[in-house]
């Protein structure tokens, strides 16, 4: 195993995946790519707003982008400490999570994808989970769900 693709957004389930990826990378001397996916559905979050000026809407979009950027930066700083000493690359993409994960795995020629398990109680944050029906048919490599 030379290349691990770690998909994380920092929730308790994803943090278990981070630990597992760190452990395997150290054991195997593998390269790790940390993938943060910005859900494309954020673009629909202005809902049926029609009263605002385009300037106010653009300001909101910029603000959301800045917030997401800040959250990802904080996440990467934390993950960097966990993966200290390993060869790590960070990737941020916008899109539908299932599609983006498989696309990046293909591009990076990952040997395995590591991700967190569904938790009984969803962690605070954007409410969306990987849909196996959409994910499994397009997986380019094995995927491990960290228990």
């Amino acid at each position: 195993m030379r290349h691990i693709l770690l998909a994380t957004h920092g929730t308790p389930g994803a943090q278990k995946a981070e630990d597992l990826a760190a452990q395997w990378a150290r054991e195997q001397g593998a390269h790790v790519t940390v993938l943060s996916i910005v859900n494309e559905d954020w673009k629909h979050m202005t809902g049926d707003d029609w009263l605002n000026t385009s300037k106010a809407r653009n300001l909101f979009a910029d603000y959301v982008e800045g917030q997401i950027e800040g959250e990802i930066k904080g996440l990467w700083e934390r993950v960097a400490r966990k993966l200290d000493g390993l060869e790590v690359e960070y990737v941020r993409r916008v899109g539908r999570p299932e599609d983006v994960l498989c696309q990046v795995a293909r591009e990076q020629q990952a040997d395995v994808i590591v991700m967190g398990a569904h938790q009984k109680k969803q962690a605070p944050g954007w409410r969306a989970r990987f849909e196996n029906k959409k994910l499994h048919p397009q997986l380019p490599c094995p995927m491990v769900v960290a228990p």
Binding site: M45, T46, G47, D48, D49, W50, L51, N52, A56, R57, L59, F60, Y63, V64, Q67, I68, E71, P124, G125, W126, R127
Partner: peptide, 29 residues
């Protein structure tokens, strides 16, 4: 005030976090 429109206008003013904006907009819709 006016639902999602006010959320869009005020979120940057009160420095709302992503999850707070998402929960608020979902609830209002």
């Amino acid at each position: 005030v006016c639902g999602v429109s006010a959320t869009v206008a005020c979120a940057p003013v009160v420095k709302a976090k992503c999850s707070e904006m998402a929960y608020t907009i979902g609830t209002i819709l």
